[in-house]
Design a protein around this nucleic acid. Structure first.
Lengths: 220, 220
DNA sequence: TAGATTGTTAATCGATTAACAATC
DNA sequence: TAGATTGTTAATCGATTAACAATC
């Protein structure tokens, strides 16, 4: 539950996951110079239900839309960004400098989302004391110690499945509160810690199932 | 709806997304030489509800578990892999050879998931006719033509948000049936085409919200 | 047999969608 | 005013969880 102004706002997990799409959509409108937008319009463009959009916006907007007019685009953008916490910066460490880890380190877009990767870790000694796009790479043994010392709250796990739980435990020991896990496994974490899975295997399962159904019905 | 043997099996989207976790878990058991596993045991280790696991397994297993014993690990593994379609190979193209695109091209693990990226596309001429880990890079203009010619069914979109819809349209024009979208925007696709979003911005929203709540209650 | 586990039917829970009064 | 749009209460839908009989 979150308090904005006076009203207590409860946002479902699903609603929260829709917010970034609204944000990008609003940015597109702003770029076009559009000043106002209504829930039905957003619903149409994003292929969502009108009421759903109304509720989502109501949870985010500090002001409330105006009948017939809708919401002010710049204002809603501002509200959305602060709702998503993109204005505050969260410092993170990344563990596992393989192909994916390197890609995330190289990605400049995270700064727009309030995420800053300030250190990377790996077990490959040839990487120690090197830098990747300005981020230093440390030995994995120092993970817990450095997280604690730097008061890191987010850990990004891009190691192979077999090592993910061990890395997770080290992060938790170091005081990390949220883990972004790219390994296709379930992580056991203490009750107060969030393990957010970036579930690519699940996406592939969706793709594969859809394809099979399409190709099956084709041959009927 | 999917027919296995005689029984029509309906699997919810959420259930499908849990399957890869079962698969990895089963692989771990196999590596340890465990021969049988029960739903309650899986539920405990993966922190899921017992009934949920029972239902998920029932949807996948060709055989049915034995009371008191549970399921045969190798058999269940086999069933799970064929259920997820990891045995057939789906050919895909990737559009956008930036940091993320490069990471996905370099990732060897996709072969385990039945995915094979056979061509990549970009608008940067300096990349044309080069290869990345054995995958040739073509000019983006040839996207539609080559998809059609090679009968590609899956398109992976790793271009910036502003170009994602245009790329999506080209893929659809080329006959692609499923799109794996890494851009943080909603893609408009025809009714029969799947747009599967890899919603990293949504994950970041979850992390950010969790963190804010933790840090707030800490200061109470 | 006793007991753990299965598979399924019924109850609950949460999110989405429909209906509608309020308002600019 | 008329009509589009808002915000909210009620109904619906789908997924999760509880209860329980069947079985090895």
């Amino acid at each position: 539950m979150q308090i904005q102004g006076n009203k207590p706002v409860v946002v479902s997990k699903q609603a929260l996951q829709r917010m970034p799409y609204y944000l990008e959509y609003l940015k597109k409108l702003r770029a076009r110079g559009v000043e106002f937008v209504s829930a039905p319009m957003i619903a149409q463009d994003l292929k969502l239900n009108e009421v759903q959009v109304r509720k989502d916006l109501a949870a985010v907007s500090s002001v409330g839309g105006r009948p017939k007019t809708g919401f002010s685009v710049p204002e809603l953008l501002q509200n959305m960004e602060s709702f998503l916490g993109y204005n505050d910066v969260n410092e993170a460490v990344l563990v596992g400098v393989g192909a994916l880890g390197r890609a995330l380190l190289s990605y400049k877009g995270f700064s727009n989302y309030g995420l800053k990767i300030i250190a990377a870790f790996d077990t490959d000694p040839s990487l120690y004391n090197t830098e990747l796009r300005g981020t230093a790479i440390f030995p994995a043994e120092r993970l817990t110690e450095l997280c604690a010392r730097l008061k890191i709250r987010i850990g990004i796990v891009t190691v192979p499945a077999g090592q993910a739980q061990a890395v997770c435990d080290m992060l938790v020991a170091g005081g990390v509160l949220a883990i972004w896990n790219f390994a296709p496994i379930h992580l056991n974490v203490p009750p107060n810690i969030l393990a957010q899975n970036e579930n690519m295997a699940a996406s592939l399962a969706m793709l594969s199932k859809h394809l099979r159904q399409k190709l099956e019905t084709e041959t009927d």
